[in-house]
Design a protein around this nucleic acid. Structure first.
Length: 545
DNA sequence: TGCAGGGTCT
């Protein structure tokens, strides 16, 4: 665009075709402000817009959120005599629907001299955007012609409203289906977590493209089925008729991050580099997250440093990653670099910052950043930020101050906050606040036995065995069993899940023998187990391995 | 001029 601009600037008086070419170039590069700027320059230089100009400018108003300017451009449309142009009318409907001004959209639609199938489509899509699927369907029935795009939009409208039965009925009624129709209905089932139907449809599809695979893989990811994400990705590579793209890689990297699958993550990194996604900011961000969640913070920093284009999420991800790794000083230093780079932080940036302060025990700095977030950046603290503050105070041993913060919060504390407090109470062996935290946790999460276990551990640490027994009874009365916590480890080309005293692995015997050997070795080196129960020693050792 | 997927969060 900068070269195009240089050439454009040399033209003494550009004609409307040249201006339209520039406008389109800006719009294609998401430079909506430049579109508006050039449009206003054109007006001052008496270059008269034509029917190609307005759709580009109106769309930029919508995409660039300059809605007030949209109204002005509408006036220019009328003044210029383009009110009856079907292309201009269609874009105006899109503009007003995007602003959720369905009345204004409908007025334009009603005044159009000639309504083609595209005009009907954007009007129907407008109703769907305004969550009025009934009106959308009514118009759909009234439309004089229905092409495949209109059918697809109506089907996806039902899906967006969560009406899968209606969506499926309409899908089955379609006179023709293209790959996008199939992907749309597939996405509906994937989003609703109905993988049985989704997988069956995937197999039945007459043709698949990269979106079809991404719908399946993304559906698994959104529903927390990370092993299935990896399985489908491997199958995609083996089948070989469709290549993964940036969206595929991002979903797979995110699954690797959740599973700790570092080797596969590294493989995806190499694949991304050699398939043209080296400078892709989505992929870069996902790589930073994957490396930091898989414990390889150096690689995360390396990806960050090599990224030519960084956005807000890039900074948030690396700051959060460093904080998570206890490298609070680096996290804070990057926050200042971010400020120097003129990237405006958001609420999520501050979660990383506060987390960094917590892990360094920097209570005063944390408080100052919290205040600065409000005063200097006009970011209203959300419950997550109060959670960070409670965690900051509590982990530093300032339990009374933490409880005070909970009381002074403008919103009701949630289970995460009380659990953070309870966790800190264990470190500092404070029964009084632990009991207070548990009382509140029972109110908020009566079915979560993990809370009882936490307090029970505190009693155990203090040797209060009667209280431990009392809690065990209370826990049994809830009728719910605690789900055992589990860990994941990447072995060869797969990921193995295990929990304490787990015997599911085919090589269980060998694993426990090795563990025993290691325990002996550690003890002979002077390691003193801290837990009182023998089983617990194994738990602690296996998790630290 | 109209339709699909993805990244950060106590």
């Amino acid at each position: 665009m900068s070269r195009a601009h240089t050439v454009f600037d040399r033209v003494f008086k550009p004609n409307i075709a040249l201006c339209n070419a520039m406008l389109k170039g800006y719009a294609q590069n998401d430079a909506y402000k430049q579109v508006m700027h050039l449009f206003s320059q054109m007006k001052s230089r008496d270059i008269v817009p034509n029917c190609f100009t307005f759709p580009i400018v109106l769309k930029s108003c919508l995409e660039g959120n300059s809605w007030r300017e949209g109204d002005e451009v509408h006036c220019d449309v009328i003044k210029g005599g383009f009110g009856a142009n079907p292309f201009v009318g269609t874009t105006l409907i899109e503009l007003y629907s995007g602003e959720r001004l369905i009345g204004a959209a409908y007025k334009v639609f009603g005044e159009m001299a000639e309504r083609n199938v595209v005009a009907w489509t954007v009007m129907i899509n407008g109703c769907i955007l305004c969550q009025n699927v009934v009106s959308a369907r009514r118009l759909f029935e009234l439309a004089p012609t229905r092409d495949i795009v209109l059918w697809n939009i109506m089907v996806s409208g039902y899906i967006e409203m969560g009406e899968m039965v209606e969506a499926r009925k309409l899908f089955d009624l379609m006179p023709n289906k293209d790959v996008m129709s199939w992907n749309t209905i597939l996405n509906g089932y994937a989003t609703n977590g109905d993988f049985e139907v989704c997988e069956r449809l995937f197999e039945e599809m007459p043709k698949r493209n990269v979106f079809s695979w991404n719908v399946l893989i993304g559906g698994y990811g959104r529903n927390g089925c990370f092993f299935d994400v990896l399985g489908a990705f491997k199958r995609m590579l083996i089948d070989g008729d469709v290549c993964p793209n940036d969206a595929t890689l991002v979903t797979v990297l995110s699954a690797c991050a959740r599973l700790g699958a570092l080797d596969l993550g590294k493989w995806v990194h190499v694949y991304a580099k050699s398939n043209g996604y080296k400078d892709n900011v989505f992929v870069g961000n996902a790589l930073i997250d994957m490396y930091s969640k898989c414990g390889s913070i150096e690689n995360a920093v390396d990806v960050f440093n090599r990224m030519g284009r960084k956005d807000l999420i890039t900074w948030n991800t690396i700051i959060g990653g460093l904080a998570m790794h206890g490298r609070g000083a680096d996290a804070l230093s990057l926050f200042h670099q971010m400020n120097n780079a003129k990237v405006q932080p958001d609420g999520i940036t501050f979660i990383g910052i506060l987390c960094a302060c917590t892990h360094m025990g920097l209570v005063k700095n944390g408080m100052a950043y919290f205040q600065s977030m409000v005063d200097d950046y006009s970011i209203e603290p959300q419950i997550e930020h109060y959670g960070c503050m409670v965690d900051l105070l509590a982990r530093a041993g300032l339990l009374a101050e933490a409880v005070d913060m909970v009381k002074r919060m403008p919103m009701e504390a949630d289970a995460v906050i009380w659990a953070a407090l309870l966790g800190a109470c264990r470190i500092y062996k404070n029964v009084e606040f632990a009991e207070l935290a548990l009382q509140n946790l029972i109110k908020l999460e009566p079915k979560n036995p993990a809370n009882f276990v936490m307090l029970s551990n505190i009693y155990g640490d203090l040797g209060k065995w009667k209280d431990v027994a009392r809690l065990k009874v209370a826990m049994r009365d809830t009728g719910f069993k605690k789900l055992p916590g589990c860990s994941l480890i990447e072995v060869k080309d797969g990921v193995v899940e295990f929990h304490s005293l787990d015997e599911r692995h085919p090589e269980t015997k060998k694993i426990y023998e090795t563990l025993k050997g290691l325990t002996k070795l550690l003890t002979s080196c002077g390691y003193k187990p801290t837990a009182a129960v023998e089983d617990k020693q194994e738990v602690e050792i296996s998790s630290s391995l």
